[in-house]
């Protein structure tokens, strides 16, 4: 099967004591195996709820979520679905269970009942994959935010998932931590072939994605390649997203009459675009 995750006509209602909130309504989404998908949306756009629906942590009020063709509603597949689709959260502190790094990473495989030797290998591989092997005997409390988040990712990777969903994994980190996490995620996708769904409100984290989905108010408002999405700056601003300064600059230059497109984000590419535009005028 080509799609690892299929969200079919999902409605999700949040039942609070005094009010009923409809977070998602008749929502559909397919995630291709091995792909790198970024979901952009501001706080409260329903993207965190979506993340929790993808591995069965939340069950749809209506509709179905399929992982490898298995419905997440099916109770007896509960554990297997969570193994296949790992979920990483925003706050690294609240995801780590044990006070020694390697013990924490072992938590998932231990729950799966693997044999001690197998677990040891899975833990070592996972720690190496996130570049934290040297810290295996350390305690999470002494690590930086970015390092802790990488341990949280290792804890998921150790279960050998097919897909990893990250819900704003960089929101609480400093620039250095953010860069560490993004490069780790890219590496897992390109080297290990793990399907990645990255949920964020930082547009620049979507640059290298295969596909970018923009969510607003529980709906998909755009779904395309990064280049395509980034050309449509007014939409991104309209849904309250963070627009990187490079894009902002290109957009304003274009508005000011310069013959330029806004589909790049990196500093080098932006500079090249401006350079070309200026030279074009001169010729």
């Amino acid at each position: 099967m080509n799609n690892i995750i299929e969200v079919k006509n999902v409605t999700f209602e949040y039942d609070d004591a005094d009010r009923k909130d409809i977070i998602l309504k008749d929502f559909c989404l397919d995630i291709k195996r091995g792909s790198f998908t970024v979901i952009l949306g501001h706080n409260g756009s329903g993207k965190s709820t979506l993340a929790k629906l993808l591995n069965g942590l939340y069950k749809p009020t209506e509709g179905n979520v399929f992982v490898d063709g298995i419905s997440t509603v099916d109770e007896k597949n509960e554990i297997e679905i969570k193994r296949r689709v790992g979920l990483v959260f925003q706050n690294p502190d609240n995801q780590l269970v044990a006070s020694i790094v390697e013990d924490d990473v072992a938590f998932g495989p231990e729950n799966l009942g693997h044999s001690p030797d197998v677990i040891r290998n899975e833990v070592d591989d996972a720690l190496k994959a996130v570049d934290m092997y040297d810290f295996r005997k350390s305690t999470p409390h002494r690590l930086s935010g970015g390092q802790k988040q990488r341990i949280a990712i290792a804890g998921i990777i150790a279960m050998k998932p097919d897909c990893i969903v990250l819900d704003e994994p960089t929101a609480m980190l400093d620039p250095k931590g953010r860069a560490e996490i993004i490069s780790t995620i890219k590496k897992l996708n390109s080297e290990k072939g793990i399907t990645v769904v990255l949920i964020t409100h930082f547009m620049e984290e979507a640059v290298d994605a295969d596909r970018v989905i923009v969510m607003d108010d529980g709906k998909i408002v755009a779904d395309s390649t990064p280049k395509d999405i980034f050309s449509n700056i007014s939409l991104l601003k309209q849904v309250g997203l963070d627009v990187p300064q490079t894009t902002e600059l290109l957009y304003r230059l274009k508005q000011g009459g310069m013959n330029i497109t806004t589909d790049v984000i990196s500093i080098e590419e932006s500079a090249q675009k401006i350079y070309d535009a200026i030279h074009l005028e001169e010729i």
Partner: peptide, 11 residues
């Protein structure tokens, strides 16, 4: 949050 994270790790 920890309870949710543990659940996601097949606990």
């Amino acid at each position: 949050e920890l309870a949710e994270a543990m659940e996601c790790r097949c606990y």
